[in-house]
């Protein structure tokens, strides 16, 4: 077993782990913010009580569906010109971010919309009967009441993002996926593949545990 890890350059492993965590974290935060906005827009423009606007809803909904339907690996390739234009290169962890965000935010936006729809209509009516404004309904009722579902949604999305970062590695995004593919697969170093897998699993577990703890703390139902 000792000799099995002979190929490992630990500096390389930690750098790759750092890249994966970096991509997941930056893309995660951006996805959370963007997805929340998309979800709120979808919900609010489809709700009589708020800002019902069928045209706006249909267009946004279509865009979301299109981005959700494109397989991530193809999205990566499609976005190369866009990425080169704004990041300056299409290689490296930072260059992977646009594709990660475009892939995850629409997905998360739908989850937020669903979470908001689950909020009891009666509670919204009650707030309305007390003279709440539309914005007060959104930030005092909808978001707090949907929070557990919003948090569990971001947990699921972060786990998918970790998977996406591994795929981004294949097109030169860096990180553990990149390492497993280039150093592991292409150079037939199985130990590199194994260690990359274990580290990705560890990251996913940590995300899931933190998410579960958070939900348990905020869900008072």
């Amino acid at each position: 077993m000792i000799s099995f890890f002979d190929n490992l350059d630990w500096d390389m492993v930690w750098e790759a782990t750092g890249s994966t965590v970096y991509m997941t974290a930056i893309a995660g935060v951006s996805t959370f913010v963007l997805g929340l906005i998309i979800g709120l827009l979808l919900y609010a423009t489809n709700e009589e009580l708020l800002f019902k606007n069928r045209a706006f809803y249909s267009v946004l909904s279509l865009i979301v569906n299109v981005f959700r339907s494109i397989p991530f690996i193809i999205l990566l390739i499609l976005l190369i010109p866009f990425t080169t234009a704004i990041v300056g290169s299409f290689l490296g962890p930072t260059a992977a971010l646009p594709a990660l965000i475009f892939g995850a935010a629409p997905f998360y936006g739908r989850m937020v919309e669903l979470a908001l729809r689950e909020v009891n209509k009666g509670v919204i009516e009650a707030a309305e009967s007390m003279g709440a404004t539309k914005f007060q309904i959104i930030y005092k009722v909808l978001i707090p009441e949907a929070l557990p579902a919003i948090v569990s949604g971001i947990t699921v999305t972060l786990v998918s993002l970790v998977g996406y970062t591994a795929m981004a590695g294949v097109v030169g995004g860096g990180g553990l996926g990149d390492m497993a593919f280039i150093e592991g697969f292409q150079r037939s170093q199985n130990d590199v593949i194994v260690i990359a897998t274990l580290l990705i699993l560890a990251i996913v577990f940590v995300i899931q545990i933190i998410g579960d703890l958070l939900i348990r703390a905020i869900d008072k139902r």
């Binding site: 009891n120 009666g122 509670v123 009516e125 009650a126 309305e128 009967s129 007390m130 003279g131 709440a132 404004t133 009722v141 707090p144 009441e145 929070l147 905020i218 008072k220 139902r221």
Partner: peptide
């Protein structure tokens, strides 16, 4: 104006409609 008047005409509901998060 309606929001103002609503503060003067309150409502109680069959299913209470409380915010469970509060």
């Amino acid at each position: 104006e309606l929001r103002g008047v609503r503060k003067n005409v309150s409502m109680v509901f069959q299913h209470f409609n409380l915010l469970w998060s509060r």
